[in-house]
Design a protein around this nucleic acid. Structure first.
Lengths: 228, 228
DNA sequence: GCAAAAGTGTTTATCTTACACCCATGT
DNA sequence: ACATGGGTGTAAGATAAACACTTTTGC
């Protein structure tokens, strides 16, 4: 009757680009079970490392990336979720700017790639479910915490932010009202540059001032970004 | 280098009474480590049971109660949180009407009791931290989901709900505005009874209509109970 | 000069807040 | 009759929503 359960971590890492929308990072498994299936990066926790450390290590080992935002998502522990042994997975949720890294399959993975969340292949284990939970978390979190910025370039045109919110919340939002609301929050600042991506008028660039955000937050200031 | 980590569940079960405020269920440990310390009910997950089942079982075994609301809270996995082996605890968050049960220490616990969250004794392991996270979750969740009703009698005077929200959010709320908002949500219904607890005019009793709530929720209806 | 994307204010409607007195009961 | 807790509406202020034309660039 001795307990025989293993503990792993998995990471749902989201990226974004105005062309591809929201993407998720997947690896192709090198070994059984689910050999050659796409799956979330992750693996067993080592005896001496924290859960977070395990996630960072696995992301490094399997995909060669380093997220700039990470939080715990949920622990998945159904007895039958792994066909071999019982494995409880502490799933995490991460955000990264895809352009910051060149993906490279490392030791444990045969391949790594970004997939649009609209076209996710069949996945190993219960990883599809985990992604669904993560997407829900992303959608709900983005309305009350400024995590969207972690997905955009450090300096970005305002329209990127607009598109990100539209893609995530898929409601048409009024550009003028959106800008008013965001600017009223007080932590977005204009940098003195412009960017032109294709045609059209060049866009001013903006930057998320994280320090200012935390100052405002400290002062008991609270405001949802959107109520809709 | 084989993984040597155990998996446990712990439960932060909240109760409420208008006199005592928010209370948390604790047990006094029978065995080492932390023998005779107060601690959260919980214990190792069995090989064949789900995490939720483990929580229900432990609550039954240690305190003789059955919660009517339960959700996963967070997994605590710092390598040093248990002095013996490494144990990862999947903490849960539960709500119960204290009057529904007579607490009774069972096999693994020497004692069980409710403690006001204002007077929590020194606890075993990192359980104080876990409770802090749970309180935060309770406070934040009660503003956007009607979980408060799980803490009140099935039929309750409106003032109980008022007091619950005041205690939790500790802001003075306007009784008239509060009632308007709650009633506008459309899932609280008057039952045709009154209750008199001490002096004063007898209070009408109300009931949370869970079915109506889920109907409204299905229809894409969303509304925060409070923004403050 | 026209297509493409960025930039920008005002008015109206809705929602939130502030506020105070009367009612029904027990003692 | 008074103390205790329960019940109730309205007006002012704040916030969100609706709405469309001009600007700057590349081709």
């Amino acid at each position: 009757m001795k307990q025989d359960i293993k503990v792993s971590v998995d990471a749902v890492v989201f990226g974004y680009s105005p062309e591809e929308g929201i993407q998720v990072l997947l690896i192709k498994r090198k070994y059984e079970p689910f050999q050659k299936s796409w799956a979330l990066p992750g693996g067993l926790v080592l005896n001496e490392e924290s859960l977070e450390e395990a996630v960072h290590r696995e992301l490094q080992e399997e995909a060669g990336i380093d997220v700039n935002y990470l939080e715990q998502l949920y622990s998945f522990g159904q007895p039958a979720r792994d066909p071999r042994n019982r494995v409880i997975s502490v799933a995490h949720f991460g955000l990264v700017r895809p352009d910051d890294y060149q993906l490279s399959a490392q030791t444990d993975a045969e391949d790594v790639a970004w997939f649009s969340i609209k076209r996710i292949p069949r996945l190993a284990f219960d990883h599809k479910q985990i992604i669904d939970v993560a997407i829900k978390r992303l959608r709900s979190k983005i309305v009350y915490e400024p995590i969207g910025f972690e997905l955009l370039d450090k300096e970005f045109p305002f329209s990127d932010l607009e598109k990100l919110y539209q893609v995530l919340l898929d409601n048409d939002l009024d550009r003028r009202n959106f800008k008013k609301r965001i600017m009223a929050l007080g932590f977005l600042e204009e940098v003195n540059k412009t960017l032109q991506r294709k045609a059209g008028r060049p866009a001013k660039l903006y930057r998320f001032n994280k320090k200012k955000y935390f100052e405002l937050k400290e002062r008991g200031y609270h405001s949802d970004l959107f109520y809709s």
